[in-house]
Design a protein around this nucleic acid. Sequence first.
DNA 1: ATTAGCACTGTGAAAAAATGAGTGCTAGGA
DNA 2: TCCTAGCACTCATTTTTTCACAGTGCTAAT
Lengths: 330, 330
Amino acid sequence: MLTDRQKEVLKIIVLEYIKLAKPVGSNLICDTLKCSSATVRSEMAALEELGLLEKTHTSSGRVPSEKGYRYYVDNLMELKKMSAEDMLKLQIIFRNNQLQFNDCVAESLRLISEMTNYTSIKLGTASHNNTLKEISVVPLNNDSLIVIVVTNMGYVEHKNITLPNVDIEDVKKTVNLINNMIVGTPIDEISQKLEYEIKPIIGNYVEEHEKLYNAFYNVFSNFTSKNIDIVGKKNILKHKEFDNIEKVSRILDKLEDENMVNLVDDIKGNNNDINIYIGKENNLDEDVTIIETDYKTPQEDGKIVVVGPKRMEYDRVVSLLEFIKENIEK
Amino acid sequence: MLTDRQKEVLKIIVLEYIKLAKPVGSNLICDTLKCSSATVRSEMAALEELGLLEKTHTSSGRVPSEKGYRYYVDNLMELKKMSAEDMLKLQIIFRNNQLQFNDCVAESLRLISEMTNYTSIKLGTASHNNTLKEISVVPLNNDSLIVIVVTNMGYVEHKNITLPNVDIEDVKKTVNLINNMIVGTPIDEISQKLEYEIKPIIGNYVEEHEKLYNAFYNVFSNFTSKNIDIVGKKNILKHKEFDNIEKVSRILDKLEDENMVNLVDDIKGNNNDINIYIGKENNLDEDVTIIETDYKTPQEDGKIVVVGPKRMEYDRVVSLLEFIKENIEK
DNA sequence: ATTAGCACTGTGAAAAAATGAGTGCTAGGA
DNA sequence: TCCTAGCACTCATTTTTTCACAGTGCTAAT
């Protein structure tokens, strides 16, 4: 258990280090704390003992350790109100009724990245609420056609398929069959439904049923329903802890290639909160912090994620995310 | 006019500098040239006089100037055959009949970037050959619906529109009107055709014609028909001439934001060749070279662009682009 | 025309020195 | 018992010095 003064010292060090990125010395603190630097030093030594602070070398000032940030986030951080300016800019986006849901989120991400110089990400998945509304087919020429899939929430996906030597009438019959039998099915159950309900009977109606069935099965099994949006990747370059090209490349690679399946081990579960993963707590890089929150809307469930250096403006990002989450969900 | 030996010297310096990125000294050259370093030095001095070479400081080796690269590209470069390996990898892509045109190009870009460590870009525009094939509408709920536009070449675009208090029958009538009257119109002429042929008569068929007309006009006027694909942006980081974060950011910004409208002043016009814009010859950055070529396919016209440092492997990139252009166009 | 020879130049790396911010520890005072 | 002034010490950083060397330009001889 920390004394009040220790908490104060830790907090000042964290905030100061976030601001200036330089190890914080005892002098800087004794002013605000109304005691001598020697006193502060002994407190700092105690905090170091506890693993909350670190030195970069024997006679340097202190830097928060991972554990230190964690303590700050859990116990010391005050959620300050968003600045009027931040607030205003965001409200403009959400008040704009012209914008569709997706554009709205995209705009917010852009704004977060611009305001904070961090990287922001949306990971959306069409929610279970999405059901098949209609499929339609446009024949292009003899052997290729476009299949268009629409869900009730307005997701649209299309795919070009090639079906040499198949009667267009057969295609139409298949489409009708699907539209009659599986419209209304949640998109994540369509593959099953095709397998169990269409496959057994399609032969009764259609000549080349094997080819056709496979083609359509393909269309649905690839229905992405994932919606990923990354903004401000190059902001990573702006922070001095990422001056190393190797490291930056590695991080960018992970952001792009992995599709961010497991940026974090989701220990905290799908709760309704804002989760913070500091350094080794996430799987991206031990020098970054990831702050994220889930959202649920009728159309889409997902996460809004902000990635930045460990010395991130935690309070600011948290309040931004809270605001956005709240506004998205209505 | 350069003597043969001067050409030889210039060529060696360009190639060597491309390979090692270090100023080239006279010793390195006199081996290959079978003459003394002193002789080479006087040739180098002559080339410097002509503005084809530069020194980084008084007693340094020589580096090609912009003009030097230009001379090399125009007069000295030999188009070497693609390496068997490069060739093979590319052929695998183009032989794969599974892949649609777009995926094919995307794959090639990826490969170029991977093989060369440069950034590659496709700027495509649906060609004039694209005509409207069909539009269709899926109503989602009372006041919003999805309009889907398909061209004969297989481009699909969809848009969510909100139309409160409009009779669904009216929507259908409008769709029929469009499908009857302007299917077959090149997409870049649709806006006009709507204005001159639909607008005057739509009132005869449909109640809320103004709202509806505007909504559909909107859909078509925003039909992007642009198709931009950038691969390997972060390769820029790999070249030592871009160690400066400011510069890298600036370049990346231009690549992203400007949509690359005017990477180059298209002085060379839309010819059928491979065009090279070295340093100040392009508008991106004075330290980069842009190599680009046009392509025309039934579906799409566009450019394939490669961006790299001035000391780019010109010959290799040119042969890659030639190969790709050729393969795309069939 | 070419080249060997030589003095000279600027870079870059390494070593040495100077600076200074910050520490830990101690001993005396509230 | 807690606080603080004082002091010696440490280490990163910056500046200065030194040194080797890669490369040049020029000249005089071939």
